[in-house]
Design a protein around this nucleic acid. Sequence first.
DNA 1: ACTTATTTTTAGGTTCATCTAAAAATTTAT
DNA 2: ATAAATTTTTAGATGAACCTAAAAATAAGT
Lengths: 220, 220
Amino acid sequence: MATTSFTEENYLKTIYAIASRQQGEVSTNALAEMTATRAASVTDMLKRLADKGLIHYKRYQGVRLTDEGERLALTIIRRHRLWEVFLVDKLGFGWDQVHEMAEELEHVRSDELVTRLDAFLNHPQFDPHGDPIPTPAGLMPDVTYRKLADLVPTEEACLMGVLDHSASFLQHLDACGLTLGSVVKVSEISSFDRSMQVTIVPDQALFVSHDVAKNLLVSE
Amino acid sequence: MATTSFTEENYLKTIYAIASRQQGEVSTNALAEMTATRAASVTDMLKRLADKGLIHYKRYQGVRLTDEGERLALTIIRRHRLWEVFLVDKLGFGWDQVHEMAEELEHVRSDELVTRLDAFLNHPQFDPHGDPIPTPAGLMPDVTYRKLADLVPTEEACLMGVLDHSASFLQHLDACGLTLGSVVKVSEISSFDRSMQVTIVPDQALFVSHDVAKNLLVSE
DNA sequence: ACTTATTTTTAGGTTCATCTAAAAATTTAT
DNA sequence: ATAAATTTTTAGATGAACCTAAAAATAAGT
């Protein structure tokens, strides 16, 4: 109920992001690195978030979101991802350009705005990077993808998302013609460097390095 | 060049707004009232804005925007008004609902975003309240309107804007069927209370109080 | 186990944007 | 023109979000 600041919202989002790719509590240092601040500043903030009942925090023990904190984090992530869809689908930005803008737009406080934006965009299920958009109630849909790197020759799958969100990775995919939604078929895997020879169905052949393949998510 | 904070941007916008409906310098007290802060806080901020070269400020003498300050104020007003068009035209909000959201959206820092939003909206010249949208270069188009209250019987004009932006005024106009773009013709003016009998062309007759008429802008 | 290294927290300080209370400048009124 | 009223500024505090440097707790190494 108490109002959460711009900065507090960013911490919640960051705690969620770190927690979702490991298990156990999130460390102060990990947060300091992600938020580009110092550990001492993080400790300050953790006390405030704990006072507001948004995280479980015991000193020296790391931190975990409360139910309320997780719900809040997910509504912010929902806003972020909806704005990304808007920027790409409606304004024609590239998927490598939208992160910074969405970081700001996500903090605009209006539930009605989010509701209408969602309808305007036709209730998208995924953002331009293939990440699922949390529900209005603050739940993360669970999607199970495989990495392209885990496929074996002759397997075919649809490109669904990326693990690396950096502009340089996304631009590299653009340059290769690897677009979400494409169907790819693995022809060969080099036993030397694990690079893959794949075909973008129907007929576009290309090599994909292991570094790329392990950051590409596929369905099926 | 130096980065302007959210708060500084709001002061610039407010200085512009007050200056544009009076002549001479803007007073500390007027700013305190508009920003809902205390005069002492305003004085603090004025020093900072003066240091950044955004205002002309001599103590006890009131304040005036520099060219740079005015350009900045107008780019913020441009963003505000473009977002209002988006919210009304694309998301279907009422013109009485969009001010608060636009207050937040206007601070999102990306020139490219504004450029693309403007194109997406088809380069609108006016916001949903009939206020002109400053140019990308930071110039306010000058439009000259009359007040409906200044028309005399048998004159006809097009509703172009409002002076009062309050939700209650706008809702009242909605309830009366007074929409921007409508053509109205003045039939009679009461010498008692200056209320007007007008016809929304072609055939919708209604009474308009002087309080309403003096806050409605018409063209021609 | 005990010393060393790492992580985390405390202590004390800074900046931004605000506040209250009191002092100074300006304006108004008699 | 001088006193009274108003406006504006200074002085000193506060809270949020950060910082550095040092202390304390935990984890790791031999």
